[in-house]
Computed example of a mutant assay.
Amino acid sequence: MFRHVPGLFYSPSATWNRIHDDIERSPCNFIPLLLLGSLIPALCIYYGASVAGWSLFGSEQQKFLSQRSAAMLAVAVWLAYVTNIVIMGWMVRWVLFRTPVRPSALRGMAFATFLSMPFMLGALAALLPERWLILLVIPIVAGYSALHLYLGLPIFMRLSKTKAYFHATCILAVGLLTMLVVGLFYLESWRALAPPGDYQGIEEERIEQTLP
């Protein structure tokens, strides 16, 4: 499944056909891509928050998380991506309940996994967490994922384009709601479990390191 990822960016229609054929042969082949691909945003968030430092909105001071807190945030991000795709697999199956060939939940998860690839790769921006870069990347990856939804749904699910557009719009609405709810759940879970102190400034860390 990893070999299909580059094709999503330069030959999407042919790639969606190849993805369809591979999932037909082995419905669980997408799982390694899901588990390993979700590590990209998790590791990038860890590096950006604990090593590179963030300039938070409303402040010009560079801040960072402790390694322990950043590691917990990375785990929360990984779980959020996996949870979101599992839920969306069932949501895709639910939205397409009246189609001639209703997809299984696994098939829906495979579809959601490839739709999330722009978000996974776009998380590389967290390695250099500048505000202007984040604001630039978010609409690009969201737009590209939505484009693949409308392009890939009729190919992957073998639907007519007329009906696929309606179903794709429903999936888009459900996906936005799911992403928001899952993201807030894991964010609040991290805030509840992470060590106190939140972000520290660079000068604060240096002072702590010099103390005996």
Rank of each mutant, 00 (worst) to 15 (best):
R3Q: 09
R18F: 04
H20Q: 10
D22K: 05
S26A: 13
P27H: 04
C28W: 15
F30H: 04
L36W: 10
L43S: 06
C44Q: 05
I45F: 13
G48Q: 00
W54N: 08
S55D: 11
E60I: 08
Q61R: 13
A71I: 05
V75L: 15
L79H: 01
A80M: 14
V92N: 09
R93H: 11
L96T: 07
F97R: 15
F97Q: 15
L106M: 14
R107E: 01
G108W: 05
A110F: 00
L124F: 06
L124K: 03
L128T: 11
E130H: 14
L135V: 10
I138H: 06
P139E: 03
P139W: 01
V141W: 02
A146V: 11
Y150A: 12
Y150V: 12
L153F: 03
F156T: 00
F156M: 03
L159T: 07
L159P: 04
S160M: 13
S160Q: 13
T162F: 10
K163A: 14
Y165W: 10
F166G: 08
H167G: 05
A173H: 09
V174F: 07
T178P: 01
L180A: 13
G183H: 02
F185R: 01
R191A: 14
R191E: 05
D198L: 14
I202W: 10
E203D: 09
E203C: 04
E203F: 04
R206E: 12
R206M: 15
Q209M: 15
Q209C: 09
L211Q: 09
P212D: 10
